[in-house]
Nucleic acid binder design. Structure first.
Length: 497
RNA sequence: GGCGCAUUGGUGUAGUCGGUUAACACGCUGCCCUCUCAAGGCAGAGAUCACGGGUUCGAGUCCCGUAUGCGCUGCCA
């Protein structure tokens, strides 16, 4: 049997990182087992679904490198099949029409209301099979329907027994039928509801393994009931632990903002492979404790058995811009940026520079070697791709900013600094050839003659040339920037004004 | 309220059939390197394995209970 799995997001907003991880795990399992990874957009909630959201889901998957097989499926296209299935169950007496007038609920208070009603019911000991229409004679039901009376269609859950399944992650699960209400399959407008739709679509698509968030663990029993009523084969289930906010609460856009959106990571300079790698490690661990994985290695190492059961906390710091997302994610990204093959990094750097008008066409031919050398030098201390155009700006443009603290520390403290640097510029101008070694020799000699520590000139030069107090070795900067730019920047009085 | 699931240092995780000082990574501290900052190397702080019982010669590992968190309990998905 070939494995067929799917990622089935509802297009009601950005792609949540938790959803992205579900997609990843499904994809990994499919690739690992030589199966198919399918994508289905669950747009049955037409009010809330948007094309834009669908677009962002597809973009997000592409960014993460998760390619899907076969055609994209829109759940709404299958609505007729869902209705047909419900009608079949109705015909077979496995479902019934509920003529109870529909209750209107405001979406924002529904959680609370539902919980309260459930509490009240459990206190009163309400029987889940007590719906008066459950055993309405077929003739009467047909007659009332034909007369145009509105009704919902509910599944006739057996009064006795229980549903069981063996979750690949959470182990054996069972639930008594008495705890499950006769769930609604079709609402009174005739629209199919989630639990029906997923099941029909999963059957239709030949899904063999359902890998999804743990929030569906208890829903699974209802869905199994539908599979059974339909006489369909029940797939295997693997539920994933949830990703929680630092306060152990639900990670939501409303509360936590952009950190939960996958596109944020793309827009803020993450390398897709790095984020994918980070996501894989949230709730899953390989047997050998390895942490850095290429896509292929990840596929190779992945197994459903390695998935943990406890929810994971996504540990970001809301009020600290430097730690705006999980430390480990940031570290992982930096690790990728400084160690990945340069050829793979370059297209991303090019896009970043281009977006900030720092790209020059010569970088593709005449200055290619210079660019590679420069990128290789500065990438060592960068955390995101953004750094190439921000912290790295001085390497690509004469128009860069001086950090106030750097200027104070490295330039203003020494009153003679301006003349010293100007003197250094004179020396560098005479150096032949001009490179890291010769510029170092020249600077050290000049420092000795002037009676100052080399470090003073080195740090001063760094700030003059890059606007910053930190960065690569000064002599490598001289080498990369070249004689002309170096000398010119040393003489510019800009930061002193 | 009911039902379900979970609980190992700040975070992510490892801990096989129960067996000496609970492991790794991120983060944190210090030292080395050094022109700065990283990286790298070294050292270190931080966990009575949620709590309470029990089984056992011995429990993070098995059993029961409690607490806490999360999920479900909807004509939302």
């Amino acid at each position: 049997m070939t494995v067929r799995v799917r990622f089935a997001p509802s297009p009601t907003g950005y792609l949540h990182i938790g959803a992205a991880r579900s997609a990843l795990f499904n994809w990994l399992y499919a690739r690992k087992s030589g199966g198919k990874f399918l994508l289905r957009i669950e747009d049955t909630d037409l009010q809330r679904s948007t094309d834009e959201s669908t677009r962002s889901i597809i973009d997000g998957l592409e960014w993460l490198g998760l390619d899907y097989d076969e055609d994209l499926v829109f759940q709404s296209d299958n609505a007729p099949k869902h209705v047909a299935a419900a009608n079949r169950l109705l015909e077979e007496g496995k479902a019934y029409r509920d003529f109870t007038p529909k209750e209107q609920r405001a979406d924002n208070v529904v959680k609370q209301e539902v919980a309260e009603r459930a509490r009240a019911q459990s206190l009163e000991g309400v029987d889940q099979r007590s719906n008066p229409y459950r055993d309405l004679p077929k003739e009467e039901s047909d007659r009332r329907a034909a007369a145009g009376e509105p009704f919902a269609v509910r599944l006739k859950v057996p009064a006795q027994g229980q549903t069981k399944f063996d979750d690949i992650v959470y182990g054996p699960q069972e639930r008594d039928h008495s705890e499950i209400e006769d769930l609604v399959l079709l609402r009174s407008g005739g629209h199919p509801l989630y639990n029906l739709s997923v099941v029909i679509d999963d059957i239709e698509m030949g899904i063999t393994h359902v890998i999804r968030g743990q929030d569906h663990l208890t829903n699974t029993h209802k869905q199994i009931l539908i599979y059974e009523a339909l006489g369909a084969e029940v797939p295997r289930f693997a539920h994933l632990p949830l990703i929680l906010a630092p306060n152990k609460g639900k990670l939501s856009k409303r509360k936590h903002g952009e950190v939960v959106s996958l596109t944020t990571y793309r827009d803020r300079g993450f390398v897709p492979a790095a984020f994918r790698n980070f996501l894989a490690l949230l709730g899953w661990a390989p047997p050998d404790g390895k942490e850095i994985f290429s896509k292929e290695e990840l596929v190779q190492a992945f197994s459903l058995e390695g998935i943990g059961r406890a929810n994971a906390i996504f540990n970001f710091h809301e009020n600290d811009p430097r730690r705006w997302t999980d430390d480990k994610a940031l570290w992982m990204n930096a690790e990728y940026i400084r160690t990945m093959p340069l050829e793979q990094l370059m297209p991303m750097v090019k896009a970043e520079l281009r977006a900030n008008k720092l790209w020059r066409e010569e970088y593709d031919d005449d200055d290619r070697d210079w660019l590679l050398k420069t990128i290789d030098m500065i990438r060592q201390r960068f955390f995101t791709l953004k750094d190439f155009s921000e912290q790295g700006r001085a390497y690509f443009s004469e128009d860069f900013d001086f950090e106030e603290s750097a200027v104070n520390k490295n330039l203003r403290k020494e009153p003679r600094m301006r003349e010293l640097l100007s003197g250094l510029a004179d020396r560098l101008e005479a150096v032949e050839p001009f490179n890291a070694d010769t510029s170092e020799a020249a600077l050290r000699a000049f420092a000795e003659e002037a009676g100052v520590k080399a470090g003073l000139l080195i740090n001063g030069s760094r700030t003059m040339l890059t606007g910053q107090a930190v960065g690569p070795s000064m002599f490598e900067i001289f080498d990369v920037l070249g004689r002309d730019a170096s000398v010119q920047r040393l003489r510019s009085g800009v930061p002193f004004n």
